[in-house]
Design a protein around this nucleic acid. Structure first.
Length: 150
DNA sequence: AGGTTGACCACCG
DNA sequence: GCGGTGGCCAACC
């Protein structure tokens, strides 16, 4: 859990943004960082997910946190190389891969055992969060899709 | 109270 | 295209 109010709001923003990734899609830490207005801190996005609280260890005694492991689709965030971050133990990445496959995302295994997802097929990279668009943010009509066709 | 680590990334050689 | 570097900042020694 964050120690300072700013950190808490940052965590909050990150979790909200991650919740907007559609099922069956993936994005990157860096993109989430951009979406929340701090493009230079992809690293802290990873920190946020790492510290994602468990749903409710004891629902009766513990105040259920607004964001937790079960309502924030952390598995839909991977690194900019299209690889599921191995972080420290491969088991974690395997677990994440399984969660993605469960929602229809194809995960391929590289020569070195890296678990990869094809951005061309599953990538989700909006300029603005859907919720912000709904809130009235106006985007210029000069949209342009720079989709790299693999 | 100071130093290191890390679910990262863009940039340069 | 790969390896090193700098920036970022919360968590953890």
């Amino acid at each position: 859990m964050p120690r300072t109010p700013e950190a808490e709001s940052f965590f909050h923003a990150v979790y909200s943004a991650v919740q907007e990734i559609p099922p069956g899609k993936v994005t990157t830490y860096g993109h989430i960082a951009k979406l929340v207005g701090t493009p230079q801190r992809p690293r802290q996005v990873g920190v946020c997910l790492k510290h994602l609280p468990v749903p409710s260890a004891d629902e009766a005694t513990t105040p259920s946190p607004r964001f937790h492991h079960d309502n924030v689709p952390w598995q839909r965030v991977i690194n900019a190389k299209g690889i599921i971050s191995p972080r420290s133990q491969p088991s974690g990445a395997r677990n994440q891969a399984a969660a993605l496959e469960a929602e229809g995302v194809a995960v391929t295994t590289g020569a070195l055992g890296e678990l990869m997802v094809n951005f061309a097929e599953y990538g989700w990279f909006p300029r603005l969060l859907p919720s912000e668009v709904a809130a009235g943010a106006v985007l210029s009509s000069d949209e342009d899709e720079g989709e790299e066709s693999e």
